[in-house]
């Protein structure tokens, strides 16, 4: 049990420091045009990586399971211009359905 509280305490302090570092270092200042270009490209980069990891990662292994079905169904909902909440519910329901039918 002690290791649970040590984990929570240390991880929280480090995370607060990570989140504070950027605003403390460059807050309120204008950045150079190259830096602004990097920042504008950060959103597609981090979102694409989060999608891939959230869909295919099972710890340190690649997995092709019901989450792929969920993502595909979510993509269809996006193409049909569904609202955000509908998109995520379609994705979850499709993955749940695929698992009910025997997918991993």
């Amino acid at each position: 049990m002690t290791e649970v509280w040590i984990t929570i305490g240390v991880l929280s302090v480090v995370t607060i420091a990570i989140k504070a570092a950027g605003p403390l270092a460059v807050g309120g200042r204008e950045l150079s045009p190259p830096a602004m270009r990097v920042i504008s490209l950060l959103a597609p980069a981090v979102l694409a990586a989060l999608i891939v990891v959230g869909t295919f990662a099972d710890g340190r292994e690649l997995a092709f399971d019901a989450r792929v079905v969920g993502l595909a169904a979510g993509a269809c909902a996006i193409a049909l211009r569904a609202p955000l909440l509908v998109i995520v519910l379609v994705a979850a329901a499709s993955a749940a359905g695929a698992r009910a039918l025997g997918a991993a």
């Binding site: 169904a73 995520v88 499709s94």
Partner: peptide, 22 residues
């Protein structure tokens, strides 16, 4: 929670945020 498909929720959400970025 996996039986409810909750682990498929955030990838779809991030995809919805990514497409307007492109």
């Amino acid at each position: 929670p996996r039986d409810l498909g909750l682990d498929a929720l955030f990838p779809a959400f991030f995809l919805a945020l990514l497409l307007p970025e492109l």
